[in-house]
Amino acid sequence: MRILLLAPHPFYQARGTPIAVKMVLEFLGARGHQVDVLTYHEGMDVSIPNCRIHRIPRVPGVSNIRPGFSFKKLVCDGVMFASCLRMMRRNRYDLVHAVEEAAFIAVVMKSLTGVPYVYDMDSSLAEQMIDSFPRLEMAYPALRRFEAAAVRRSAGVLTVCAALEDVAHGHAPGTPVGRVEDTTLLSDTRNPNGTALLPNETAGAPVAMYVGNLEHYQGIDLLLEGFRHTLDRVPEARLVIVGGRDDDIARYTRRCAALGIRPAVLFLGPKPVTVLADLLREADVLVSPRLKGLNTPMKIYSYLDSGTAVLATRLRTHTQVLDDRTAYLVDPEPLALGSGLAALLRDPSLRQRLASHAKDYVQREFTPEAARRKLESFYAMIESRAAGARA
Score class of each variant (00 low, 15 high):
52 R>F: 01
56 I>V: 14
60 P>E: 02
61 G>M: 03
62 V>T: 11
63 S>A: 14
65 I>K: 04
67 P>T: 14
69 F>E: 06
69 F>V: 14
74 L>F: 13
77 D>K: 12
78 G>Q: 14
78 G>M: 10
79 V>R: 07
81 F>L: 14
83 S>M: 09
83 S>E: 12
83 S>P: 12
84 C>G: 02
85 L>E: 12
87 M>H: 03
87 M>G: 00
87 M>S: 04
87 M>T: 00
89 R>Q: 13
91 N>E: 08
92 R>T: 11
94 D>Q: 10
96 V>S: 03
96 V>C: 05
98 A>F: 02
99 V>Q: 08
100 E>L: 12
100 E>H: 11
101 E>L: 04
102 A>H: 09
104 F>M: 10
109 M>R: 08
110 K>L: 01
111 S>L: 09
111 S>H: 06
114 G>I: 03
115 V>I: 09
118 V>D: 12
119 Y>S: 02
119 Y>V: 01
122 D>H: 15
125 L>M: 15
126 A>C: 11
127 E>H: 13
134 P>F: 10
138 M>R: 15
140 Y>A: 13
141 P>W: 05
142 A>S: 13
142 A>I: 13
145 R>H: 09
146 F>R: 09
146 F>Q: 10
147 E>P: 09
148 A>Q: 06
149 A>L: 14
150 A>Q: 06
150 A>Y: 00
150 A>G: 00
151 V>G: 01
152 R>Q: 05
153 R>S: 11
154 S>I: 03
154 S>H: 06
155 A>T: 01
155 A>C: 06
155 A>H: 04
156 G>P: 02
158 L>P: 07
158 L>T: 05
159 T>V: 10
160 V>M: 03
162 A>W: 00
164 L>N: 04
